[in-house]
Amino acid sequence: MKAMLRKECKLAALPLTYFFLAFGFMALVPGYPILLSAFFVCLGLFQTFQTAREANDLLYTVLLPIRKADAVKSRYLFCAMIELAAFALAAICTLVRMTALKDAAAYRSNALMNANLVYLGFLLLIYGCFNAVFVRGFFKSGGGLLKPFLLFGLLAFLIVGVGEALHFIPALSAANAFGFDHIGLQAACLAAGVCLFALLTALAEKSAEQAFEKVDL
């Protein structure tokens, strides 16, 4: 699998995908729907899928001395690696906002989603959906891009909408807490995000392996 991951990084990956990791810094932008950063990171991954397809990456890969399922596993690993790197960057920025910048006027007057642990949980949910909807759809269709990405896009914008609307419901206003206020609720939301990301990714990967095995290339 090490050789496969190396192949993903050296041959399949588009440099743009790595540049798009910088969208993790969007957690620091005030007055902006910061959950969209996850969509942009996924857009960067999409570019890799598109370029790799044009470079006949799938055919090259399945002709290597590997099982067909390994091609799926390595692409999932690559996606998770990029997603978790972007998440780590967003987590660092979020911690800065929760501590040193907790009382900054620009953030205090922010009408949109605040960067806190709830935000991080939502980021992971979007990444999990990308793996479950787009990546699985790509392998299931033997390299189809448009339909899986449109479906993911719709779902991602729905999640962003829900995330942004949540704190306007009086009973859920704590979801937009500053700093370490309501830390129990924040931590629970992050934990839910971690579980959903892990579950969606693991189940989708297995399902994609089985679906790809049946595809004629």
């Binding site: 050789a3 190396r6 192949k7 050296k10 041959l11 470079a55 006949n56 990456d57 055919l59 090259y60 002709l63 290597l64 001395p65 590997i66």
Partner: peptide, 29 residues
């Protein structure tokens, strides 16, 4: 697949990558 080789005249893998990069990755398998 460790013991077979395949080639087609029609398919062009990684057309924009230098050959030495493709070789460096391929040989690890």
């Amino acid at each position: 697949k460790q013991r077979i080789g395949y080639s087609t005249g029609a398919v062009n893998y990684y057309p924009k990558k230098p050959i030495k990069e493709i070789v460096a990755v391929t040989k690890t398998f």
